[in-house]
Simulated scan of single mutants.
Amino acid sequence: MKALVIGGTGPTGHLIVNGLIGRGYAVAMLHTGRHEVDEIPPAVEHIHADPFSEDALKQALDGRSFDLTLAAYGRLRRIALVMRGRTGRFISIGGAPAYRGYMNPTVLEVRGMPMPTAEDAELVPVEEEDAKGWRVAQTERAVFEIHPDATHFRYPYLYGRYQIGPREWCVVRRIIDGRRRIIVPEDGLSLSHAGYVENVAHAVMLAVDKPELSSGQIYNCGDAHQLTIRQRVEIIAEALGAEMEIVSMPWQFAVPARPMLAQPRTTHRVLDLSKIKSQLGYTDLVAPASALAMTARWLKEHPLAPGGIDEKILQDPFDYRAEDELIAAWKALCAKMPEVKFDREPGYTATYSGPGGRPRSSKWS
């Protein structure tokens, strides 16, 4: 069996390539050749061409065919066209921004995406609403017009080795720099779906293993267990042996937290994984807390270049002077908040039984 992986040097690429090899495929990788990944075995064929150029793809693949093509990089619509008649199966990777409200939650009548968001949720309908999301959605439609039996994955934000512009670096670098406090919006309680690279690659391999079930399907993928921003900060700090003061502010004041939030709202972005769980049997290979800790330690051992391309993608200036000034101003403002007395102090409802809740009305065993 012959497989073509278009891409293969990104965060999930080597995991997919090795997963295919383990299943008996002879694998060829088509990529630019600008960099290689140590985890790719020498037996893998490397086809160096521009995945963004239709002419380059046609020339590089002239006279060749494959049992399986997995498109993880490049212009997906052009790749789908070039591979028509050249491949038995076509698996493509896109992204969650196809969903309406993912990038622009204000367009929804009730602000924020459905919780959780299933595969049949509304996609971005017009370019004016969200140009990137609209292009992603249009590409999905084009793939299935060309390959009706394709399998398509909507990736969330990824974390792990080789991720470009990793948001975890916002915490890791501060710890490396000796910072012991970090600003988060709204107590850091926002959920934005993420997927550890090994877990997401595992999801793709499940589709490879189950062609009859996955044919013609779109799947959300990512970690089954999601972590809030606060939890992510706490896990990273513990993994690196640091104690971090988490300073919570309203989102409009928590400007330094924008790169971690990655959107101008604190609304949740959580994908429904029911379909991939029920049809393909997905479960997390690696627990997200452990995966995040490993990612933090790897970033500490392989630090990003200060001011380099990854930090430019993150858009985190690591401006500690401004952060300290903001924290001081916020704490001073909170200290000035007067104590307001209620005639009858509000409770947490009569059904709440945790600390500070309703006392027992009678003794029973």
Rank of each mutant, 00 (worst) to 15 (best):
R258G: 10
R258P: 00
R258V: 05
R258A: 12
M260P: 02
M260K: 01
M260W: 03
M260G: 01
L261N: 14
L261H: 11
L261F: 10
L261S: 10
L261D: 12
A262F: 13
A262E: 14
A262Q: 14
Q263V: 11
Q263T: 14
Q263F: 06
Q263S: 13
P264K: 08
P264H: 09
P264G: 06
R265E: 13
R265A: 12
R265H: 13
R265T: 14
T266C: 13
T266W: 04
T266M: 12
T266D: 09
T267Q: 12
T267W: 10
T267E: 15
T267L: 08
H268Q: 12
H268D: 15
H268S: 12
R269K: 08
R269P: 02
R269T: 02
R269I: 01
R269S: 05
V270W: 15
V270C: 11
V270R: 14
L271M: 14
D272E: 09
D272G: 08
D272P: 08
D272C: 10
L273W: 00
L273C: 08
L273E: 06
L273H: 01
S274T: 15
S274W: 02
S274C: 07
K275V: 07
K275L: 12
K275M: 10
K275G: 08
I276R: 05
I276P: 08
I276Q: 11
K277E: 14
K277M: 12
K277F: 03
K277D: 03
S278K: 15
S278R: 15
Q279D: 15
Q279A: 13
Q279P: 09
Q279R: 15
Q279S: 13
L280H: 09
L280Q: 11
G281R: 08
G281E: 05
G281P: 09
G281H: 06
G281C: 07
Y282R: 08
Y282L: 14
Y282G: 05
T283I: 11
T283E: 15
T283N: 13
D284W: 10
D284R: 08
D284K: 10
L285E: 11
L285P: 09
V286Q: 01
V286Y: 01
A287Q: 09
A287P: 07
A287D: 14
A287T: 01
A287R: 06
P288T: 04
P288L: 04
P288M: 04
P288A: 03
A289E: 15
A289K: 09
S290M: 06
S290Q: 12
S290W: 03
S290E: 14
A291P: 11
A291E: 00
A291H: 07
L292K: 03
L292T: 04
L292I: 06
L292W: 06
L292G: 02
A293T: 03
A293N: 01
A293V: 04
A293I: 03
A293H: 02
M294P: 00
M294C: 04
M294T: 00
M294G: 06
M294N: 11
T295A: 11
T295N: 09
A296V: 03
A296T: 03
R297T: 01
R297F: 00
W298C: 01
W298L: 02
W298T: 00
W298E: 07
W298P: 04
L299K: 02
L299G: 02
L299P: 04
L299T: 00
L299C: 00
L299I: 00
L299S: 01
